[in-house]
Design a protein around this nucleic acid. Structure first.
Length: 505
RNA sequence: GGCGCAUUCGUCUAGAGGCCUAGGAUACUGCCCUCUCAAGGCAGAGACACGGGUUCGAAUCCCGUAUGCGCUACCA
């Protein structure tokens, strides 16, 4: 049933906001289908609502898609044989006007001169009578003279679709099956607005046809208007594409629709824009993996990690779920951690660098803000399996760049030890470290472990004060690697500082 | 209000009439490992919305109820 050859799919966002997580998932499914079948993924911009236009939205949408690696074969900036790919530009060419007029000429559409005020009155009256709110088809039955009078009045008309007055319309959705509506429940909806711009229904149908789209994958909110689109295809005499309506995302509680940035019960906020995931230090490959499995399943049942290539190979429309999904941020974090751990250390260092610099700028720490790849690369093994997002890295390694605050006695002194004992242990450790022929992980570990033995201390009793002295905190990366990375000079100085702190009190 | 879509552990999901004592993942809890934190290993708790059918047999098919969501614009 699926026409697999020559698959052409489009992602058609409106530039009314930043690239949203739900939009990104739609784009991903489009892209996966196109890549799987060697077809084309087209980006089309539906900017027919000039009131809601947001200037930097388009750039954000494209940047988001590119960050995710969802490259489009036709669309803005890359061109293609069916352009232009921005609807306002197509409108300027008269494309929608032409097709709307074609329906008027065929008796399948008509000019409507009703004012917004009259439409509002009609709506209220119909509602008061328990009817579905909608248009009363007043202008559908205008005489030629009345039509002339309307035009003469100078009020720019809209063009409405003359919906069939009887019978049924049947539409198909690949994941939901057949949907049949009674045509009497359908409104004479507007095709062309009085400003000459098309309404979504006209623009989408015309462009999908003209661009030879084979599969329309879009949000669930379009399902109720699918019959309208089918009617339009029929009126034009065009072949129908396949339709797939994706269910929406719910907020993390699973109770409400997730739309704009919203508050969590706990008081926090959750992310909804792709740019936020990027800024929080998520890897695009992790987001792809996460999103792919949110609303679709390869049916294998026992795997969570899929590479981009595997997703392309396994993807199929049949695996798409009809039910809404609540965003599982915990899983996104976990997945991101998995991907970070699998990264090549050089690669991770490059990705970490901007986050470290930004953290430095925000905290006013010049050494962090000016961090270099050469400085960061040796620290990668210390953080790689400890971070879930790139943005968490700076807080793990900032003490390499800046003198940590003097630790408190409470942090410094292990349980069952006195301040004096701790100071003695630190002194012994300092002397041992100072005398070491080399200052690498293995040498340090061997020396410190045997020192603990000689002092009759447990490993933790010796290592904890050293860690606190050197890093300024009780939770830090493994000690020996940390010391080796810090360098002997700084390590010794910090230990000595802690000793003084212990003795002074 | 009308019309439509949906309903398996908290969450993402496997499940196409007997393979289900309902599987995996995440999150949570405990134990192990261990220089802290992680990572890793093991274990535990946790679901077929409800009610009727159909059938020898239903998470799977049908009907109803409930709940959630969507649409009902010269927005998309």
């Amino acid at each position: 049933m699926t026409r697999e050859k020559g698959v052409r799919v489009r992602f058609a966002p409106s530039p009314t906001g930043y690239l949203h997580i739900g939009g990104a998932r739609t784009a991903l499914y489009d892209w996966l289908l196109a890549r799987k079948h060697g077809g084309q993924f087209i980006l089309r911009i539906e900017d027919t609502d000039r009131k809601r236009y947001v200037p930097d939205a388009l750039d954000d949408q494209m940047a988001g898609l590119r960050w995710l690696g969802l490259d489009w074969d036709e669309g803005p900036e890359v061109g293609g044989p069916y352009g232009p790919y921005i609807q306002s530009e197509r409108q300027a060419l008269g494309i929608y006007q032409q097709y709307a007029e074609q329906l008027v000429a065929a008796g399948r559409a008509y000019y409507c001169f009703c004012s917004p005020e009259r439409l509002e009155e009609v709506r209220q009256e119909r509602q008061a009578h328990g009817l579905a709110p909608g248009y009363d088809r007043h202008c559908r039955y205008l005489t030629p003279a009345e039509r002339e009078a309307g035009i003469a009045r100078g009020f720019p008309p809209v063009i409405r679709f003359a919906a069939p007055l009887e019978g049924n319309t049947t539409a198909h959705d690949l994941v939901r099956g057949e949907i049949t509506v009674d045509n009497r429940t359908q409104d004479d909806f507007i095709l062309l607005k009085s400003d000459g711009f098309p309404v979504y229904h006209l623009a989408a149908v015309v462009d999908d046809h003209l661009m030879r789209i084979t599969h329309v994958i879009r949000g669930d909110e379009w399902l109720p208007s699918l019959p309208r689109h089918v009617m339009l295809y029929h009126a034009f005499g065009w072949e129908l594409p396949e339709f797939v309506h994706l269910s929406i995302f719910l907020d993390p509680s699973g109770k409400g629709k997730m739309s704009k940035r919203k508050k969590l019960e706990g008081g926090g906020e959750y992310m909804t824009f792709i740019r936020e995931f990027r800024e929080e230090g998520y890897l695009p490959e992790a987001i792809i993996n996460w999103l792919a499995l949110m609303g679709w399943s390869p049916g294998l049942g026992d795997r969570e990690i899929y590479s981009r290539q595997e997703l392309i190979e396994l993807f199929s429309l049949e695996g798409i779920h009809p039910s809404p999904a609540a965003l599982n941020y915990d899983k996104a974090e976990w997945l991101n951690g998995v991907y970070i751990r699998h990264l090549d250390p050089d690669d991770l260092a490059h990705r970490l660098l901007p986050f470290i610099r930004i953290a430095g700028q925000e905290s006013g720490v010049a050494a962090l803000a000016e961090a270099t790849f050469e400085q960061v690369r040796p620290l990668v093994p210390l953080v790689q399996e400890r971070i879930k997002t790139l943005a968490e890295a700076p807080e793990h390694i900032d003490f390499f760049f800046i003198e940590p605050p003097t630790p408190s006695l409470e942090e410094l002194v292990p349980k069952k030890m006195t301040a004096a004992e701790t100071a003695r242990a630190l002194g012994a450790a300092r002397e041992t470290l100072a005398a070491l022929p080399a200052f690498d992980h293995a040498t340090i570990e061997e020396a410190l472990r045997s020192l603990a033995d000689r002092l009759g201390l447990k490993a933790g009793q010796l290592f904890t004060p050293i860690r606190v002295a050197v890093t300024g905190r009780t939770v830090a990366p493994p000690l020996f690697e940390t010391l080796a990375c810090l360098g002997r000079e700084k390590a010794l100085a910090r230990i000595e500082r802690a000793e003084r702190e212990l003795l002074d009190r």
